[in-house]
Amino acid sequence: MATCKHYQEQIELDLDGELSASLRTELASHLAVCPQCSEYRAEALIFRRTLATGLQLLPPRDIVEPVLAKIKKRRAWRRVGFTAILLLPFLCINMLSAQKVAQIILSLNFGALPTLLSSIWRSVTVLFRSWIRIAEILPEEYWLGLSALALFNLAMVLKLYAPKRVRGGKAH
């Protein structure tokens, strides 16, 4: 036959919500006839309340604002990374377009004027749309850096595809 010590262990499990339904029924039957275990249960309940209230604390400072600020920052950085990945193909297209434009200008083939205009238009619109998209999603502080990156990119493209000059100032 189970002793009171056994039932008192079961009381602890029950109060922790870890006792099976069948054992709870058995425990309830025992508690109905055992004043000592009933008293143990009442004391255990008070002890738990004491522990719960004594160990529950409030943070000394606000947590919400710093966490939301960090999340905003993380979101912004993820967007920068995501946008950079998205922009890579566009930059490639820009460079290819610029290459084509440079070739056409160098050949001075006016018969290819529609192709030339089409290339320029495509290049400009792709670039414009990309940067509009970035403007929508990026916070202001990243704008300076990205603008500098864009200018650098433009300068590199211009330098790469500018007509090479020989001494005397004549282009190839």
Binding site: T50, L51, T53, G54, Q56, P59
Partner: peptide, 19 residues
């Protein structure tokens, strides 16, 4: 240093420290 939860006043300061 530490702020208690809303129910913590059930315990006296002495009881809290002892706990």
């Amino acid at each position: 240093e530490v702020q208690r939860g809303p129910d913590a006043d059930i315990l006296s300061a002495e009881q809290k420290a002892e706990l």
